[in-house]
């Protein structure tokens, strides 16, 4: 009994640790959807490219991914902004299916590109502390997960400060509410869209950088699965608030961890897929309301 209880507490804490990473990768998706009403299917591709960039930088400079995130995130801000200007902007007025297929194609290209350059081997970044753990009572915590959680939390707090405190940040939030009204009061909607897509990509880049510490990866895995998890999270948490995204990240991570602890490890991913479909179906009111706003916009 006490055994099970300890394992459940462990599941809670380890869910909290993963939630920082989940929230970082999902909030980029939510940000881009909020401003542009586009589902960024290339999010996984950006995470993957960021992970490989981190790997290469770690191998050449020896710097820890926790430091490299300061380089990688701005780099993928630029990548995202360029992607928006060159490709996404052309379809921003078309039907959702067009941007979906376009970004899906972009994802395929990124994946094939990484496979051709880096090969399909499983990689990972392993700094000195990777196997160290800390004991709190009966609960065991890995250092790398604690660091990733803290980094994710710091990034989200900084983002929130930016979105609330700066003119550009407020313009992004305003655009998410009403694009036409923004244009009327003189907001440069094109430029703000570019910044929003760049920011979303920077968040995906930061998540890709951080996840090298936690997950082994190759050009395909675990990015496709993570992509789906971020869909689940933004669908579950709503697209408006950072709190909702953070809470949904924790809920999903907890559901997964409890599945692993109390049932079977193979079913971990099944949970998020089932949650995704069920939430989409059971809460169509919330989603329909969101998309009705798109029609008016």
């Amino acid at each position: 009994m006490i055994e099970t209880l300890v394992r459940v507490v462990e599941a809670f804490i380890s869910a909290l640790m993963v939630a920082g990473l989940y929230a970082t990768m999902s909030y980029g998706l939510a940000l881009i959807y909020g401003v542009m009403k586009i589902i960024n299917l290339a999010n996984a591709g950006i995470m993957m490219l960021a992970a490989f960039t981190t790997l290469v930088l770690w191998q050449t400079t020896g710097l820890d991914p926790l430091v490299l995130v300061v380089v990688v995130a701005p780099l993928f801000f630029v990548v995202g902004a360029v992607l928006e200007v060159v490709v996404v902007r052309r379809v921003s007025a078309a039907a959702p299916i067009v941007s979906l297929l376009l970004l899906f194609g972009t994802w395929l290209v990124m994946q094939a590109f990484a496979n051709l350059i880096f090969g399909g081997d499983v990689r990972g970044v392993r700094p000195a502390y990777i196997d160290s753990v800390v004991h709190v009572g009966d609960v065991t915590l890995a250092y790398n997960r604690i660091f990733v959680f803290v980094a994710g939390a710091v990034i989200l707090v900084l983002l929130e400060l930016f979105l609330r405190g700066t003119f550009l940040g407020r313009a992004i939030r305003a655009l998410a509410q009403d694009r036409e009204a923004c244009a009327l009061v003189g907001v440069d909607t094109k430029r703000v869209s570019m910044v929003a897509f760049g920011l979303g990509s920077a968040l995906a880049g930061a998540a890709g950088c951080l996840l090298t510490l936690v997950f082994p990866f190759d050009p395909t895995n675990p990015f496709g699965v993570l992509q789906l998890k971020s869909f689940t999270i933004i669908v579950l948490g709503g697209l408006e608030s950072i709190i909702g995204v953070a809470f949904a990240s924790f809920l999903l991570a907890l559901a997964e961890n409890l599945t692993v602890t109390l049932s079977r490890p193979q079913l971990e991913n099944l949970v998020s897929f089932v949650v995704l479909v069920v939430v989409l179906v059971v809460m169509p009111g919330g989603l329909a309301a969101l998309l009705r706003r798109r029609r008016l916009a």
């Binding site: 009403k37 589902i39 998309l291």
Partner: peptide, 12 residues
Amino acid sequence: LRGPYFAIATIG
């Protein structure tokens, strides 16, 4: 479901 949500549900 509207917009892109059907597509995402089918991935799931």
